[in-house]
Write a protein that binds this DNA or RNA. Sequence first.
DNA 1: GTGCCTGTTACCTC
DNA 2: AGAGGTAACAGGCA
Length: 277
Amino acid sequence: MPELPEVETIVRELAESDLIGKKITACTVSWHRSVEGLTPGAFCQRIIGQKIHEIVRKGKHIVLTLDHDLLIIHLRMTGKFCFQTAVDPVLKHERIRLQFDDKKLLIFEDQRKFGKWKLVEKEKIKWDKVGLEPLSPDYTLEAFRKLILKRRTPAKAFLLNQAFLAGLGNIYVDEALWESKIHPRRSLLSLNDQEILRLFEAIPKVLEKGILHQGTTLGSSRANYFSVSGRRGGNQYQLNVFRREGQPCLRCGNEIIKIRVAQRGTHVCPHCQKIES
DNA sequence: GTGCCTGTTACCTC
DNA sequence: AGAGGTAACAGGCA
């Protein structure tokens, strides 16, 4: 569920909440596999007493700088946060709760239980599986071309791979490919300079639009994306292809179709995004 | 009820 | 190196 724009929205809300400078005074893990690498007991023992100094996004990861460790959280499909007070009931899909020195509770909910929290000593952190950040100054046409160079992988598989580019998921990949008029099955080798430039420009464009609209919330169920304050995103009303199968392409009027690429549901305009270039 | 689908990623084999 | 399959899970939907 949450891709870069949704994670960014959450991180901004967390960073602007009053968590910075707060000390963790209690911790409850109610699903042991939400914690990676440590038993729930060891995890709680290590995190209690540490203060939160900074909250940032790295690809789709949420990174909280504590006194000694980095707390790295990946929401995967259905992870979300909310604030509660001690008198509120335990939520149905609650997996982890942190209590702070002001008695406030940060709750981690995760219906499908794929989300992960881990503690890593600051000096030992490695980000080798997190690729180029499309919204950073490092994102240049040269850097982008270097990633594409000599690869024969389909464009969609490439964009989904976090080790190359960090932060794109199924929604924004389909949007970026539609925007740049590239078929998701096109081999990177087949892309000409003009197409590479269009793709290079489309990626930050669709991500920034997603952030501007505070993320994409597709359905109405609680399994969907909600910000920390419980707000829905608005980007679902701005999508050009994703989940628009059977509807007219907003650029040419032809019908959007849904196919399967890299084992993922994939939305394309067969007229704008031709497989042969 | 049954079977298929879902926004993610790690891990395995080929 | 890269592709394809499966698994981790719960629930919505036809």
